[in-house]
């Protein structure tokens, strides 16, 4: 049997997933399995790393305990990309797609990254929909500390001023 993803190599990993009350079997070669975050190796992992297979299985397990996810089939109202186009190309068409196809994307992001929650920089533009001021403050304090450690005092001073502005607004 050939791999479902690359259709070239022999499938070595066989998984059965229950998604949206639908049972789906996936057959992958070891490289495509690795791309999807499924490890076929029981090799050593560094402390703190989540074993990808366990992670994958945990996600499968959690599906049943939640209300079934309904996959969106209508095209994105902003850019018009269809769910089929998205599946075929692996690319979304615009930022609104992340809202429109959120149900599918959340699972996909977990499979790719092992997480669907951003932990990096918070975007501080006024145009952003961000309301978590405390989160912004802690991110900026962290970055200021790092700037001081690396002797980037210009950035540190900029951040200090912005932290002050935010604190005043509180």
């Amino acid at each position: 049997m050939l791999c479902d993803d690359c259709k070239e190599k022999e499938a070595e990993v066989h998984l059965t997933a229950v998604e949206a009350e639908e049972i789906r079997s996936v057959h992958l070669c070891s490289s495509c399995a690795a791309i999807r975050g499924v490890s076929t190796d029981t090799g050593e992992l560094h402390p703190g790393d989540t074993p990808p297979l366990a992670d994958f299985l945990a996600q499968l397990g959690s599906v049943g305990s939640r209300p079934p996810v309904t996959a969106v089939t209508e095209p994105c109202p902003f850019c018009g990309i269809s769910a089929a186009d998205f599946r075929r190309t692996g690319r979304v068409g615009c930022s609104q797609c992340y809202v429109h196809f959120e149900a599918q994307l959340r699972g996909l992001l977990r499979r790719i990254h092992g997480s669907s929650q951003h932990a990096g920089k918070l975007y501080l533009s006024e145009a952003s929909d961000l309301t978590d001021r405390l989160g912004q403050l802690s991110s900026m304090r962290r970055r200021m500390k790092r700037a001081i450690e690396t002797e980037d005092f210009e950035t540190a001073a900029e951040l200090r001023d912005r932290i002050h502005e935010l604190e005043v607004q509180e």
Binding site: Y98, V99, S116, Q117, H118, Y123, S128
Partner: peptide, 9 residues
Amino acid sequence: FAYHHQFGY
């Protein structure tokens, strides 16, 4: 910039 509170950039 396009940014989502959960998905980031």
